[in-house]
Design a protein around this nucleic acid. Structure first.
Lengths: 205, 205
DNA sequence: ATGCGAATAGATTGCTTGTTCTAGAATAAA
DNA sequence: TTTATTCTAGAACAAGCAATCTATTCGCAT
C-alpha cells in the first residue's frame, strides 16, 4: 500500500443501505452516497466498479445476515422458530431490514445487472436459504412434497411474517409484541403440511 | 371540438399500466408510453399535465376497480369473502393486478408528487376502503377495537391474501386453486378478533 | 369554402444521472 | 530523498429524462 485510505468500502455500503432504506432505490445515487460519506464521487469507483456493485454488495451483506439466523433453524427442523426469528433480526438493524424487506431485488438492479461474481454470490445465498427451507419442509412431510405444500410453507415461514412486519417497517416504528403473537397464532392455526384431502392413516409412522 | 383526437387518455393510461406491470415504475418513461401508443411524446401533455398525473390516474383506476369489488363485501360484514375476492379480481386483468399489488405507491411518485386533485382522489379512495374495513371489523367485534385487532384484521383481509397472490403475479403464471384454499384455511384457523386474554363471558349478547 | 382552435408532430431545452478523466496529495519502501 | 503507487478531489462527458416550444395538420361551425 502507499496512501492511507480515508473512505472504506463499508462506509459506502452503509451509506447506500441507509439511503435505500430511507428513500427507496432511486435515492441511492452515486452523488448522494458520496455526499453522505463526505467523499468525492470518483472515490467510490476505487472500491466498486459500478453502482450495481455497491447495491449488490449491500444486498449480499443484508441477506447473508438474515441467512445466518434462519438457515440453522430451518436445518434443525424448526420452521416456527425461523418465522419468529425474523422479528428480533429486524429490530436489530432497522436500515438493513428496510433495505432487504421493503424493496424487491429487481427494483435495485433494473438499470444495470450487478457484475458477474456478485451475481453469483447472490444466487449462492439464495440457494443456501432455499435448500435449508426445502430440507425443513421435506423432512417434516416425510416424502414427496407437492408444489402446493411448498407454497404453503413459504407463506407461513417467510411471506406471512414479512407481511406482518411490513407495516411497522413502513411506519418506521417499534415492532409491537402482538406481531410475534400473530405469527405464533398463525402457525398454531394453519398446518405446515396441506390439510387437504388427507385421507391417509394418521397412525402410520 | 375541431380536430379528431387519434389518442385518448385511456390509450396512455393503458400503456403506462402495462409498462409498469411489465418492467416496474422506471420503465414507464414518457417516451416509452408514447412509443407504445404510437404517439409523439408531446401529445401526452394534451391529456395529462405530467408523468405523475398519468401514473396517479392509472393508480386511481386500478384501486377504484378493486374498491368496487371489496367495499360492498366489507360493508356487508363478509371479511372472508372479501379476502377471497382478491383472486378473481387479479385473474381478471393481470396488468392491473401487477401494477397495483407489486409496486408501492411511493415508488411511483418518488420523483414528483401528483397534482393536487388527483392526490385528493387517491386519498378519497383509500379512506373509502378504510372506512369499509373499519366498519367490517368494528361491527363483528361489537365495540372498541384495539390497534392489535385492526392489525390482525388488515393482515387477514388484505396483506395475507396479497402475499399468497404475489408469487404467482411475479411469475406471471395462472393463479392456482390452492391459493384460494390457503386463504380459506387461514380464515378458518385464525380468528379475526384477537384470541388473546379474552376472559369475558362468551354468552353475553 | 373557410378559418378558428385543438391535436399532432418531433426537435429542443435544461437537468440529472452514472461513469471517466486529469491532476494532485499522501505514504511506504528504496 | 526519491520514487512508485494508491488514493483523493472534482471537473468533464455522454446518455437519458421530463417537459417545453414551434410548426403543421386536420375537422367542425360558420
Amino acid at each position: 500500500m502507499v496512501r492511507t485510505a480515508r473512505f472504506s468500502a463499508e462506509h459506502f455500503i452503509d451509506a447506500a443501505l441507509a439511503l435505500v432504506a430511507e428513500g427507496g432505490p432511486g435515492a441511492a445515487t452515486m452523488q448522494a452516497i458520496a455526499r453522505k460519506v463526505g467523499a468525492p464521487t470518483g472515490s467510490i469507483y476505487h472500491r466498486f466498479e459500478s453502482r450495481s456493485a455497491i447495491l449488490a454488495t449491500a444486498w449480499n451483506a443484508s441477506y447473508g445476515s438474515l441467512a445466518r439466523v434462519l438457515v440453522p433453524l430451518l436445518q434443525a427442523g424448526r420452521p416456527r422458530e425461523a418465522a419468529l426469528a425474523l422479528l428480533p433480526w429486524a429490530g436489530e438493524d432497522r436500515h438493513r431490514a428496510r433495505f432487504l424487506l421493503l424493496h424487491e431485488p429487481v427494483s435495485l438492479f433494473e438499470e444495470a445487472p450487478p457484475p458477474e461474481p456478485l451475481r453469483q454470490a447472490m444466487e449462492r445465498l439464495e440457494s443456501e436459504m432455499d435448500q435449508a427451507f426445502r430440507a425443513c419442509v421435506g423432512l417434516s412431510g416425510g416424502g414427496i412434497t407437492r408444489e402446493e405444500d411448498l407454497a404453503r410453507a413459504k407463506f407461513l415461514i417467510f411471506d406471512a411474517p414479512i407481511a406482518i412486519l411490513r407495516p411497522h417497517l413502513l411506519a418506521d416504528g417499534d415492532i409491537p409484541a402482538f406481531a410475534g403473537q400473530m405469527i405464533a397464532e398463525l402457525h398454531a392455526g394453519v398446518p405446515l403440511a396441506g390439510s387437504g384431502l388427507r385421507t391417509g392413516s394418521p397412525h402410520t409412522a
